[in-house]
Design a protein around this nucleic acid. Structure first.
Length: 527
RNA sequence: GAUUCCGUAGCUCAGCAGGUAGAGCAAUACACUUUUAAUGUAUGGGUCCUGGGUUCGAAUCCCAGCGGAAUCACCA
């Protein structure tokens, strides 16, 4: 009986798509494949190679012909994806979408097909053309009775046939959305579809791109050099995090995907560059959340002969300029808050920020007193936590979430900052700031440690932590120490979380909304 | 990693006192030469996430798994 079944299948097999047999296509997919066959039967190539010459984008037409008189309107050609069709017998309206927007086109049977053969309208357009297809049109611009700028189509060509149906999202005059494509999983897994049907998604990524471009212009204007440093590193460093580990076959050695590029950029400062920056893709093998993706982008910048005070000025200047360039104002709506990026930002020391909150000056409290304070606020502690970790916990629980407006928190305990220079006049602290905004860390910066002997001591302290079981303790990087021993000028450095900044600049609630392809579990394909 | 919620047509969703499925849009057919969430008439379309269990009978109840979302914990 199996033989019967298979011969039956073979006889039903579509000769044009033998490899597609038995794939469980939906009715609509089958229909589109049939349309593809029909187009070829009519001598139309559904995937032509020839370039299509466009005279205008949809945006060009909306802009250029907004106030122009009818009789002066000219012939144009444009291309786009067919997003809707309204067929009314011998005439139809359709909407074309290109990268700049949408434009309505009007297709009249007898104008598209002046001769006796009406196939191009009746067959090709009405029957074998579907929402999602890429088409090119040429025709005259006109305004409909309701006043909408449209194209009178005189030529119509297929550019690419879509075999899967696109979710049809409709909007009424008030902009209300009907039948939206909203399932977050589907949107992230099929970002290409999300981008086609949800125009606000395109806006977010265009803003992100402009944001990075603005930063690049800002840094270049100051004379800093954009550089590239290794992603595959024999030794990871520059941050406290668990790395991804991989292996190089020829060298037969382990390699790590970078968790930061700090130590490489400082080597370049040793080498004599006076300002270097890199938009670095970093990788951290840690939890995922609304704020964390395993790979993310960090801007790191190092400038010789400067310190962390200067870096605060530079940072607030950058962010103010960015807000104005992107949104024409410094005050931005972010979730329920309005955040004002106008410089200057508040500066407060780590100690003062905690002291304000708890009503006790914490500067001179010892470990026992800090632990009691933490317990008073029901903050979990454990015996392995030293003074620095306790301060960090107090800050993270009590202060950070409440810092909505941009705030520089300065002067951290030396144990928490193995790459930062000791404070010029506060023993036990380093010259470091974090920029906190909307309750989250947005940037982290120091006067960079350039004393090679101190740096060696700090690394050794990290090694000791590692031996006690801290998985995030840094490795001792001999080559980096060698570089410092050749002499690094005083340097200010900063790391800015680009994804989080993008979330803020685009008012996005999740990091997945500012990454084209956020990390997800593999999709299950049954069978 | 913990907790809560979710998974039904291409899309958005309803259905759940247990009786093997519905709507709108999309699709198909017909009508319609300035519509715009076009309209009218008709039609087709579903492993109800997967696998077990209870039951005469499961989309619905129970268990396990897979996937997703939200909240919480650590890192940016």
């Amino acid at each position: 009986m199996n033989q019967n079944n298979s011969s039956q299948e073979a006889s039903q097999q579509d000769p044009l798509f033998p490899h597609r047999q038995g794939l469980g296509l939906s009715e609509q997919e089958l229909h589109r494949r049939q349309a593809l066959n029909q187009l070829r039967a009519l001598g139309i190539d559904p995937y032509p190679s020839a370039a299509f010459h466009r005279t205008h984008s949809t945006q060009d037409i909306h802009r250029d012909f907004k106030d122009v008189e009818v009789d002066s309107w000219s012939s144009v050609s444009l291309a786009g994806r067919l997003m809707s069709r309204r067929i009314m017998g011998k005439a139809s309206f359709a909407e074309l979408q290109d990268s700049t927007g949408r434009l309505q086109v009007y297709i009249n049977r007898d104008e598209l097909c002046p001769g006796d053969n009406k196939d191009l309208y009746n067959e090709v357009f009405k029957k074998h053309c579907d929402i999602g297809d890429w088409v090119g049109v040429r025709g005259r611009i006109f305004r409909t009775q309701v006043g909408e700028i449209s194209i009178h189509v005189e030529e119509f060509v297929f550019l690419s046939k879509a075999l899967r149906p696109l979710p049809v999202v409709k909007r009424d005059e008030q902009g209300r959305v009907y039948d939206g494509f909203t399932d977050p999983e589907l949107r992230y897994r099929m970002r290409y579809v999300d981008l086609v049907v949800n125009p606000e998604v395109r806006q977010v990524f265009m803003l992100r791109s402009r944001m990075i471009e603005l930063m690049r212009q800002f840094f270049n204007r100051h004379g800093y050099l954009e550089v590239e440093t290794p992603v595959l590193q024999p030794m990871y460093g520059g941050a406290s995090a668990r790395p991804f580990k991989t292996h190089h076959h020829t060298l037969d050695m382990p390699l790590y995907l970078r968790i930061a590029n700090e130590l490489y950029l400082k080597r370049l400062i040793v080498g004599g560059f006076e300002g270097v920056y890199e938009f670095a893709r970093d990788f951290r093998n840690e939890g995922m959340s609304r704020f964390h993706n395993p790979e993310f982008t960090m801007l790191e910048l190092y400038v010789a002969f400067q310190d962390y005070h200067w870096m605060m000025h530079q940072t607030e200047a950058l962010l103010e300029e960015m807000a104005v360039a992107l949104h024409q104002q410094t005050a931005l709506k972010v979730g329920p808050h309005t955040i004002d990026f106008k410089a200057p930002y508040r500066r407060v020391t780590l100690y003062d920020s905690i002291s304000e909150k708890v009503g006790v000056q914490v500067d001179d409290l010892d470990e026992t007193a800090l632990r009691q304070l933490a317990q008073k606020y029901r903050i979990e502690t454990d015996v392995s936590m030293g003074r620095a970790k306790l301060l960090d916990a107090l800050f993270g629980e009590l202060v950070e979430p409440n810092l909505i407006q941009p705030t520089f928190v300065t002067d951290y305990p030396v144990e928490m900052s193995p790459l930062a220079k000791v404070h010029r006049d506060k023993p036990g602290l380093v010259e470091r700031f974090e920029l906190i905004c909307n309750g989250k860390e947005l940037a982290n910066a120091f006067s960079e440690l350039n004393d090679p002997l101190d740096q060696r001591d700090r690394f050794e302290a990290q090694l000791a932590l590692g031996l006690r079981g801290d998985p995030e303790a840094m490795m001792l990087d001999e080559d980096f120490l060698r570089a410092l021993e050749f002499g690094m000028p005083p340097t200010a450095g900063i790391g800015i979380g680009i994804d989080r900044l993008a979330m803020m600049m685009t008012n996005s609630a999740s990091i997945q909304d500012v990454l084209f392809f956020p990390q997800m579990r593999p999709e299950r394909h049954d069978g």
